[in-house]
C-alpha cells in the first residue's frame, strides 16, 4: 500500500497545488469580504499539506523496502470498459440510443461475459429495445435518435 500512497499523494499534491494557484489568480478577497478564490484556496492548501505529509511518509517507507508491488494485470478489463463507456457517450449523439446501446451490450456480454455470439446478440437486441420502449416511449424521455439517421434520410 505504501507504493500506492506514494503515487496517489504525488497526484493529489500536484492537483492541490494547481488549484491553489488558480484560486489565488481568481482572487482571495479580504477577510471581511472573502472572494471567489478564498474557499478553494484554503481547501486546496490544506489538501496540499496533507498530501505532502502522506507523500513524505510513504517515500520513507518505500526507501526502506516496504513498498510492495502494484499489480497492473487486473486493470485490463476495467480500463477497457472505461474506454467503451467514453466511446458510447461519444457515439450516442451520432448513432442514437438504440444502435449504440445494442453495440455496447454486445461487447459487454460477448467479450466480458464470454457468452456465445448468438446469445449475446439476442440479449443485446432484447435489452436495447426494452430500455428504449421503457424510457423513450413509456416515460417520454427524449433519448438521442442519432444524427446520422437524419442525415441518411432521403430528401
Amino acid at each position: 500500500m505504501e507504493r500506492h500512497n506514494l503515487y496517489s499523494s504525488s497526484l493529489l499534491l500536484a492537483m492541490a497545488s494547481l488549484i491553489c494557484y488558480k484560486a489565488y489568480r481568481i482572487g482571495l478577497g479580504r477577510p471581511d469580504n472573502p472572494g471567489e478564490g478564498f474557499a478553494p484556496f484554503w481547501i486546496s492548501f490544506v489538501l496540499a499539506l496533507l498530501s505532502a505529509y502522506l507523500l513524505f511518509g510513504s517515500y520513507l517507507k518505500v526507501m526502506k523496502g516496504r513498498g510492495g508491488p502494484i499489480g497492473v494485470a487486473t486493470w485490463r478489463k476495467p480500463v477497457y470498459l472505461l474506454f467503451l463507456l467514453f466511446l458510447y457517450a461519444f457515439l450516442l449523439r451520432f448513432l442514437g440510443f438504440l444502435a449504440v446501446t445494442f453495440l455496447l451490450m454486445l461487447f459487454l456480454l460477448y467479450s466480458f461475459g464470454g457468452e456465445s455470439l448468438r446469445k449475446s446478440l439476442l440479449f443485446s437486441v432484447l435489452i436495447s429495445f426494452i430500455f428504449y420502449f421503457l424510457f423513450a416511449r413509456g416515460l417520454q424521455l427524449p433519448l438521442p435518435t442519432g444524427l446520422i439517421w437524419d442525415y441518411l434520410k432521403p430528401g
Binding site: 458510447y88 446501446t101 459487454l108 466480458f112 461475459g113 457468452e115 435489452i127 424510457f135
Partner: peptide, 17 residues
C-alpha cells in the same frame, strides 16, 4: 455477466435523463 450490463445501462439512462 447479465446483471452488470443492465445496471450500467440503468446508470447511463438515469444520468442522461
Amino acid at each position: 455477466k447479465y446483471l452488470f450490463p443492465i445496471v450500467l445501462l440503468f446508470c447511463i439512462v438515469g444520468v442522461y435523463s
